[in-house]
Structures are given as C-alpha cells and as structure tokens.
Amino acid sequence: MTDTPVRPEARPQPTSGSRQALSEIAAEIPDTTPRRRVGARVRGLLKHLGLIAFGLVMLYPLLWMLSSSFKPTALIFREPGLVPTEWDFSNYGDGWSALLHPFHHYLINSALVVLGSVLGNLVSCSMAAYAFARLKFRGRNLWFAVMLMSIMLPIHVIIVPQYILFSSLEWINTFLPLIVPKLLATDAFFVFLMVQFFRGIPREFDEAARLDGCGHGRIFVQIMLPLALPALATTAIFTFIWTWNDFFSQLIFLTRPDMYTVPIALRTFVDATSNSSWGPLFAMSIVSLIPVFLVFLFGQKYLVKGIATTGIK
C-alpha cells in the first residue's frame, strides 16, 4: 500500500484560494458564466444550433414513439411518418385498462421496487465504497477483485441459482429479491463508481478531520457524502432508470399479476404468436417513460452540484 509518487506536473497544487472555495461548498451558485465578447456570442449560437440539430436526432425515437401512440395499430406499420394521418386517442384509454389491473397498479409496484432499490444502493454502496476507498484493512484488494468479479457473469446463468436461492427463502413473488440485494451492496457498478469519486476527494480533508477527532462515521457522513454529491446523484438516477426498465429479473421473480411491474405489464401487450396490441403498447410505453424522464430532468442538476460549483467569480 505504498503511494507511488505522482508525476509532479500532473498534480496541480492547491492554493490559498481553496479555503474560501471550500467554505462555499454548500452555496448554490448558478453555473452560468457571463459571456463578455460578441465573438463568444456567435460561437455560443453556433454551439446551440449544433446541439439542437444533434438533439433532434437523439429525440427522433421518442417523437416517433409519441406519434405512433396516437396511430391506430395497423397504421404503425404501414405509415412510418412522424405525423399521423389518422389520429387515434383511444390507445391511452385502452392501454390503461387493457390488463388485469389498471395501469397505475403497475406504476405503483414499479415505484415501490425502484424506491427500495435507490435507497438501498445509496446507503449500502456508498458505505462499501468508503471502506474500499479510504480504509486500510487486510485483503482489501482481494475483496475488491471479488466484488468486480461478481458482475462479470451474465445474468442468464446467475438467474437460475438465484431463483433457487430466493425460492428456498420463500421470496418468490415478493419484491424482496429485487430490493434486498440492493440493500446489501451487490451492485458492484455503483460501489466502484463511488470508490472512484471518493478517491477523487483530496485526502487532506479527511486527514484534517481525523486530527480534529472525527471518527470514520462523521468523516463519511459529513465530508465524503456531501463532497460526492454528483456520484450519489448518478447512483440514484441510474438505479432508478435501470430498475424501472429492468425486465428479466422482475419477470422471473414476480409470478402473480398483482405483483407485476411496468416492464412486465408492457410485455403483456405483445406476443410473437398471437394478436398484439401495438397501439396501447406505445401509449403505455410513453406513460412509463414520463417518470424516468422527469427523474432525469430534475435529478441531473444534482449531478453538477459538486465541489466545482463553488468559487466562480
């Protein structure tokens, strides 16, 4: 565990400005830098135009889905255009009530799973990450390797033993197999993510706190977590989105229709071997995108509330 000397040119030396900067960590300063010159304005305009054009390409699938959700099922395939020639608003109403339960039933189920998962990942992964990033203990590298290894096996060979395990615990058809693993930091992706962020926090901060008598608990809660807010936001957002969209494990572990979540509900609109309700599928797909989109839209501002939001003059 010896520290290799860092290439000096790569390491910018913190200066006296840092004290003031740090005292403003919690301050909410809007991240806009006033542009002063006309040239910059033109460049900014071009940048926006480029981004808008690019954004439209990125948005095309969503617009297409939206437009398809207002087409009668047969037209979805016959007319690829973005503007429906024939509007059909019934897809939303039909889709909402087409399944055994009204669609909000599945939205609520998904919300429960997602909330449990987000909470679990935030707490457990950040704790594990703190240990891996800052604590000195025997076998640290080995355990870290074990953790990474656990995400290198494809879900398809893991799911059957998992099912057997959860079945023996009588957890099948409950949300436990979906939430408990998150409470126990099994999402190595996020542990590693936070390890990287924690390690990016200058060690002087916690060394100093240690001198002042802070234990690891306080350092973790009062220094690391606030300083790693972008990482926490990333974890929360990704956990939300990935859990919300996760089909396979929810399909396998939830067997009764009253426990079904949104991804399973969406699948029940289509079937390769019989009549499919494409119109309602598109409508409900749009509905199910709204929560994730909103979470991203509002969550992303926390992505940018790190150390860097301070000290801009």
Binding site: P14, F197, G200, Q300, L303, I307
Partner: peptide
Amino acid sequence: MVIFLAGLRQIPVMYYEAA
C-alpha cells in the same frame, strides 16, 4: 456521459483558479 459530467463537477475549482 452522465458519469463524466459528475466527474467534471468534482474537480475543485481552486485548481483552476490557481492555474
């Protein structure tokens, strides 16, 4: 991209000020 964004925001501004 999101992870990069978060990473960019974690770089202390004091470094840029110093630079």
